[in-house]
Computed example of a mutant assay.
Amino acid sequence: MLSLLFFAVLPISCLAKPTSDFYSYSVAVGSGSGTAFSSEGEGRITAIRVWETSNAYITGIQLQYDFIWSKRVGREVGNAHELILFDGEAIIQVSGKYHSNYIYQVMFVTSRGRALIVGQPIQNSFNFYPVHQGAELKLLSGRFNSNGITSLGAHWGLVSSITTSSTQ
Rank of each mutant, 00 (worst) to 15 (best):
L2A: 13
S3R: 04
L4W: 02
L5F: 11
F6E: 13
A8F: 07
L10A: 05
L10C: 02
I12S: 06
L15I: 09
A16P: 00
S20W: 14
D21K: 04
F22I: 07
F22M: 10
Y23R: 11
S24F: 08
V27M: 05
A28K: 13
V29Q: 12
G32D: 07
S33G: 11
A36D: 09
A36Y: 05
F37E: 03
S38Y: 03
E40S: 12
E40T: 10
G41K: 01
E42C: 07
G43D: 12
A47Q: 04
R49T: 07
R49Q: 13
V50A: 08
E52T: 01
T53V: 12
Y57D: 02
Y57Q: 13
I58Y: 08
I61H: 08
I61E: 09
Q62T: 08
Q64S: 15
Y65K: 07
D66H: 07
F67T: 11
F67N: 14
I68M: 01
K71E: 15
V73S: 02
G74H: 09
A80Q: 08
E82W: 03
I84W: 06
L85V: 14
D87G: 02
G88I: 06
E89A: 03
V94P: 00
S95A: 14
G96Q: 03
H99F: 04
Y102V: 03
Y104S: 12
Q105P: 03
V106W: 09
V106L: 10
M107R: 14
V109H: 01
V109N: 01
T110G: 03
G113R: 05
A115E: 08
L116K: 05
V118Q: 06
V118A: 09
I122A: 05
I122D: 00
N124S: 13
Y129S: 01
P130R: 08
H132R: 04
A135T: 09
A135C: 11
E136L: 02
L137T: 10
K138A: 02
L139C: 14
S141Y: 15
G142H: 08
R143I: 01
N145Q: 10
S146H: 11
I149Q: 02
L152I: 15
G153W: 04
A154T: 10
H155E: 11
H155G: 12
W156F: 02
W156M: 03
G157S: 10
L158D: 02
L158Y: 10
V159D: 12
S161R: 14
S161H: 15
T163H: 15
T164E: 14
T164L: 15
S165F: 13
Q168K: 12
